[in-house]
Amino acid sequence: MAGTSAREIKPLRFGVVAPVTVGLPAWRDQLRVLADTGYSTILMPDVPQWQPAPGPALAMAATITGLRVGTWVYASPVRPAWITAWEAHSLSVLTEGRFEMGIGTGRPGIAGQLRELGLPATPAGRRLSQVREVVAALRDLDGPDRHTPVVMAVGGPKAQALAAEVADSVTFVMPQVETRAETMQRVEQFENRRGVELALHVPVVGDSVAAFMAGPDTDAAAVRAADSLAFLPSDPSAAAEEIQRRREEIGFSYFVVGAEAAGALAPVVAELAGR
C-alpha cells in the first residue's frame, strides 16, 4: 500500500480552495464560516485571471480565520524561483507557521498563460527543475529553526521522485475520469519512503463541480460513473464512509474540495477532522 514501508494511518484534515470570486465582504464571511466548521486550511490558486495574487489573499485569510493557509498550487514557471521562495517564507513568518507551500509545474495550458504574461516557454523538464530550486531556496530562507511544509502536485515518475525526496505532502495530477483501480496503482507506485502525507484533490462533490479545480468541460455524471476519486457524494454519511475507505485502502488523509461544496461536507468535516 502506497508503495512504502513507512505506511501509516495519518489523521484526517480538510482544505478548501476559496479564491476571491465574489465581493470582499462575502468572501470574508465565507472564510469565517469555513473556520467554524472544522476545515483546517484555506487554499488559493495561482492563476492571475481569476483573483488577486495568492500571497496577499492568503495573508488576509490567515488574519481573518486563524486557520492554516496555502497555495494550491504555485506554478513554477510563472516567477523566478527565489521570488516564489521568498514569498512562501514570508507567509510562513507572517502567519507564525500556518502557511504551507503548494507547488507544481503548472496547470494544463501553462504554455498559453506564459505567452500571455510575456514569459518564455519553459520545457517540462526545466519546470520540474524550477520546483527543486524553489524548495531549495525556501529551505535556505527558513534556516534551521523553521520548516515551511511543501505540498507537491505531481504527475509522472520524475515529479514523483522529486516529491518523495523533498515534499511533506503530495497530491497526484490525474485524469478526472481515472478509475479507482488506476489511482490505487498510481499511488502504490509512489516510493513514499519518508511517509509523506497523501492529499486528494476532489473537484466534484455530488452534482457540484468546482470550476477553479476542474476543466471547463467536466461532466459530474461521467466522473461519478468512472468510480473516480475526483468525486465524493454530497450525502454526509456516504461521504464520510468513502473518505475513511480512501484513507484505509490507499492512504489519503488530506482532502481538498472547492468552496461551493464546503457547506455540503461540513457535517463530515466536523465528524472526521483530526481523527
Rank of each mutant, 00 (worst) to 15 (best):
A57G: 06
E8R: 15
A259F: 10
A264F: 06
I110G: 01
E116L: 11
P108A: 11
P54K: 04
G3M: 14
E241M: 12
V134D: 00
V78Q: 11
Y74P: 00
L114F: 04
A6W: 11
D29L: 14
W27T: 07
T148W: 11
R245S: 10
L232V: 06
Y39H: 04
T84F: 05
E248K: 13
Q160H: 00
L229R: 09
A59S: 11
F212K: 09
A59I: 01
A181R: 08
R224N: 09
A111I: 01
R13N: 03
E182L: 15
T105N: 05
T65G: 06
E191L: 15
A221S: 14
P123K: 06
W82M: 10
E8N: 13
W50T: 09
Q185S: 12
V134Y: 01
A270T: 04
T105W: 09
A153I: 03
V257F: 08
D145M: 14
Q189E: 15
L119Y: 03
G195L: 02
H201P: 00
D168A: 12
T37Q: 08
V256E: 00
A239H: 05
R180N: 08
A18K: 05
M44Y: 14
V33I: 13
P149Y: 12
L91W: 04
G70K: 04
A6E: 08
P149F: 10
A211C: 03
E241H: 14
V196F: 02
L200C: 12
M152P: 08
G251N: 09
T65N: 05
A161H: 03
L34W: 06
A225V: 13
A85L: 03
I250V: 14
V166D: 03
A262L: 10
L162Y: 07
A136E: 13
Q185N: 11
E116K: 10
A199L: 09
V47K: 07
S40Q: 10
S169V: 08
